[in-house]
Structures are given as structure tokens and as C-alpha cells.
Amino acid sequence: MNRDLANASDVTLAMAIARWDQEALAEVYRRNAGPVFGLARRVLADAAVAEEVVQEVFLRLWHEPGRYDPERGSLRTFLLSQVHSRSVDMLRSDTARRQREVRDARSTASGQYDVEHEFLDIAVAEGVRDAMGVLQPGERSAIELAYFGGHTYREVASILGEPEGTIKSRIRSGMRRMQSSLAAKGLAVGKMQPAEENP
């Protein structure tokens, strides 16, 4: 492994990718492919389709590195956002949704997550878990159905038998509640502030 790339920042890697440096893309993949695949698999409930989405997202980064803006967050956040959006698009095609619903009803084992991770940071993980814990049951249900279920808020309203306005409000209040909880624990959630001039 290229030692410099192994320690490179997201910006350095993005710039290297812009110079057609395949090793840089490989490093981005090494750092982020697991979570990116995990999210796609969870939304799509299909490892093979999830893998296709992962390939698509990394190839898009290769061809369009300028789409990543470090002022808006890390490469991880960018890639997760990209893969979630693409997964939901695929899920909303009738065929994919029908296949998933049948599969979900018969077995949901495919949503399993591994818990081991080389970067395990218990304090941070607990902070995120606590943030989920502050949600009201109705907020949590709405957010989980929307984000992991790939449903629109209208579909969530239909599933839960609630008015659409209620679901929108619950998603908003739940997201804000989690945001506050994470921020209170020192997790940097929020718009990045401009940095000081680099030395």
C-alpha cells in the first residue's frame, strides 16, 4: 500500500483521483467500501444488487470527483449519501420493491450487521446509540421506515396509518432530536465551520 495515500486526507485523495490515480481510488474504496456496501445492502436487502450500486458509486467518483465537496463533509458522508440515494431510486422501481417486499415478509436475515470493526470507538458508538434512544417510538418508526425502508414519507404514513403531516413532523423532530444529542456528546454533526488558514 502506498504509505502516503494511506495517511492522505479526503481532499488529497479526491485531487489524486482527479489526476486519474487509481491507487487513490483504491484507498478511498479501502476506507469506505464496507459501510457503503452495508447501507446499500440494508436498503435493498439484496447483496448482489447492493454490490452493483457500490460499483456504480465508486465509478462515478472516478469519473466525476468534482462532485465531492469537502466543505460539506467527509468522503464517507458523501459516498453514503450517494449510495443511499441510488439505492432508494432502484428500490422504487416496481420490480425491485416487489421482490424485496416478498423477501422481507419471508425472511429478514439479510439485514444483519457485523459488529466488529477495526476502528471501534465505543464512546462514539454509544453516543450514536444514545441519540437513537432519545427518539419517541413514533419518530423512530418513521425515520427507520423512510431511511432503511426506502419509503417516501407518504408511504410511511400509509404503512403506519398516520396523517402525512404527522409523519413529516415526526421525521423532522426526530432528526433534530438526534442532531442535538450527537452535538451534546461532542460528535461534530452540523455544517462545518470555515477553518483557519493552514499554516
Binding site: P35, G38, R42, Y113, Y147, F148, L182, L187
Partner: peptide, 8 residues
Amino acid sequence: ALLGNSGV
């Protein structure tokens, strides 16, 4: 993104 982050 935090919600979607995982260790797989």
C-alpha cells in the same frame, strides 16, 4: 450518514 454508517 451516521445512521447509515456500518461495520460490514
